[in-house]
Each structure stands twice: as structure tokens, then as C-alpha cells.
Simulated assay, not measured.
Amino acid sequence: MRSDRYWKKNCIAWVAEDDEIWWWPDIQHQYYWPPGICREETLEAFQEVYKMLGYEVCQGDVLEEGFQKIAIYTNSNKVPTHVARQLPTGKWTSKLGSLEDIEHNNLQRLTGNPGYGEVAYIMKKSIPV
């Protein structure tokens, strides 16, 4: 589904539920990156961003009542490439760069697609039930 009002944000912002700006840890500061988090394209930096938002590393992508989960993808060099968020239905949602927002039944649907890589970490945070 194309959402024109969301063209400004990428997958990182989509998962953080920021409707306004593109998030990326570029060293030129062209994009937003949370203050205090190292501006590096590393798994550790991405984990820190989501820890700041209340997520913690967990095991498994199965839907858990009372939690919202995210998945961080990396390429073969362990550089973050994509982030997806679990919906209350158990399906996942992704923002494909400046393109459309999609839903997928599982995390493997994006695995193997050029540019997305493999799921490196699942994180979750508590949400009101």
C-alpha cells in the first residue's frame, strides 16, 4: 500500500512510529538520528536506538500478548539494512525505503531479497493490553 503522507520516512522511522522524518546514522547529518546514539551503521547503534524506545533483545518472532516486536535485518557483513515491526495480528509491516508500506506474514518473506539480508535480532517492548 502506498502511503503518500509517509513518503518522508524509511523503515527505521516506520518502526519507531515517526511519521515525519527519515532516520539514518549518516555522518553528514543529513538525516535524523537520536541524540546520544553513535552515528554508525552498526547493529549495536541500531539496538541502542530501539532500546532508547523501550525495546529489549528477545528470542523468537511469535506474537506475544502485551508486547510489540521488531526485527533488525543485516547484510552478510552484519551492517543493518532493514527493520520490520510486528502488528497486533501477528503479521509484520515494513516500509520499503521511500516506496510503499507492506504487510508480510513472516520475517522470511524479506529474507534473501537483495538489500534486506537476514534477521539478526528480534526485540520487544511492553505495550498496554
Rank of each mutant, 00 (worst) to 15 (best):
Y55Q: 00
K78W: 06
E41L: 14
F67T: 06
K51D: 01
T89K: 04
G90Q: 04
E41M: 10
H29Q: 07
W7Y: 11
H82V: 06
G112C: 01
Y121T: 07
K125V: 01
E44Q: 14
S76N: 12
K91R: 09
I21G: 04
K78C: 05
Y31N: 12
E40D: 11
D4Y: 13
R2A: 12
R5M: 11
I12T: 15
T42N: 06
T42A: 04
L99V: 04
A45C: 13
W14S: 12
W22G: 06
E64H: 15
N10H: 01
Y6D: 13
V49Q: 04
I102H: 04
K78G: 02
T81R: 11
E118D: 10
W23D: 06
K51H: 03
D61R: 13
E64R: 15
Y6L: 15
L87A: 08
L53N: 00
S94C: 13
F46Q: 06
W33E: 08
V79N: 02
N10P: 01
E64F: 06
L63K: 15
Y73I: 14
Y6E: 15
E64T: 15
E65S: 14
Y6I: 08
P114D: 10
V57T: 00
C58S: 07
L99R: 12
A16T: 07
A16D: 10
L107Q: 05
R85K: 15
Y32M: 09
D4G: 12
M52N: 03
N106F: 06
R2H: 14
Y50I: 04
H82I: 03
Y31R: 05
G36Q: 14
L99D: 11
C11Q: 03
E100I: 03
H29G: 02
E41V: 09
N75G: 15
E40T: 10
P114E: 13
S76P: 04
I12Y: 13
V57G: 00
K124I: 00
Y73S: 10
R5Q: 14
Y116N: 05
W92N: 07
